[in-house]
């Protein structure tokens, strides 16, 4: 299978997604050992991020490739007023593959349209972060052994959360039943629910996680950001209702797992970390094989 770049999860078919996850598994288990020596990855991060950038750099290093990256966005040519297009036209001469994170929506697509070198989107504003979605799917598959027909809940800020929007659209390919748990003011946007209706995906909306938690296979938690609320009183009202604590987990299914894209603030109590249900640190780790798979596929080192 041939990939030009990874810009949006919406560009990928179910078949392509499964193929990427399969390559990731082969790399993780050592069945496939792509050799990226002599290849250079450039991480163009115009916005701070430790996790995603380190994860890409680690993935590249582990496959024998090299990484060039900029110190910090403020020191970059962007600060001097260079256009993204020009930056990419220069970097394509220095690197074989480009990973970009940029605060503006559509920036990754524009970067990809500006070069023949493969581009991976590591987050373009509020729009897409496809490698996060792929590693989320990989994690679910690792936890449950399958992606089809699972009961998956998403909890927290469903209105602005980029990860939950992409994950919803990806899970709709696998006929999962979805539960959306959020305060009234942070509900899943109507256009996403409309889309699920069109695809005949079963879903429901809830305010209280305790009512449904015992049915679930996966609970995907996200951060509720204070700045999303019109006033602080409103925030104070809801923030405690969405803290996942061991007391909530008394009767959950045995295969139940909790995920979180991290960083967490207070959404998951630290007393959950030691339970068999905590899977968020593993999830962060799965970023490595998934990104190794993408780098290898885009550089033509895995067919």
């Amino acid at each position: 299978m041939k990939f030009q770049g990874i810009i949006s999860i919406n560009d990928l078919s179910k078949k392509e997604i499964l193929y990427i996850l399969d390559v990731a598994k082969k790399i993780e288990t050592g069945k496939t050992k792509p050799d990226l020596s002599g290849k250079v990855l450039s991480t163009l991060f115009f916005e701070p991020s430790t996790r995603t950038r380190f994860s890409f750099e680690s993935a590249m290093n582990r496959l024998g490739g090299r990484v060039i990256s900029m110190a910090e966005p403020k020191a970059s040519s962007l600060a001097k007023g260079e256009s993204l297009h020009d930056t990419v036209k220069v970097i394509e001469r220095y690197a074989d593959i480009i990973v970009i994170r940029h605060p503006q929506e559509g920036s990754a697509r524009w970067a990809a349209d500006s070069t023949k070198k493969p581009v991976i989107n590591a987050g373009d504003g509020a729009n897409q972060h496809p490698t996060q979605t792929l590693l989320d799917l990989y994690t679910i598959k690792k936890a449950q052994g399958k992606l089809n027909n699972l009961k998956v809940a998403m909890i927290g800020d469903l209105k602005y959360g980029r990860t939950v929007h992409s994950l919803t659209s990806a899970l709709s390919l696998f006929n999962c039943q979805l539960f959306f748990v959020s305060p009234e003011s942070l509900k899943m946007p109507e256009h996403i629910l409309e889309d699920l209706k069109k695809k005949k995906i079963k879903y429901s909306e809830h305010e209280d996680p305790s009512k449904i938690i015992n049915k679930l296979d996966i609970l995907y938690a996200t951060r509720i950001q204070k700045e999303r609320f019109p006033d602080e009183a409103e925030y104070e009202k809801v923030k405690h209702a969405y803290v996942i604590d061991v007391s909530l987990l008394k009767n959950v299914k045995k295969n139940f797992r909790i995920m979180h894209p991290l960083p967490r603030v207070s959404e998951i109590s630290t007393n959950v970390d030691g339970t068999p249900y905590a899977f968020y640190f593993e999830q962060a780790g799965f970023g490595i094989p998934v990104r190794q798979a993408l780098l290898s596929l885009l550089l033509g080192k895995v067919k």
Binding site: S83, L84, H85, H102, P103, Q104, E105, G106, S107, R109, W110, D124, G125, A126
Partner: peptide, 9 residues
């Protein structure tokens, strides 16, 4: 916040 509004695209 679209790139087309912030750069000549």
């Amino acid at each position: 916040n679209c790139i087309t509004r912030n750069e000549k695209v």
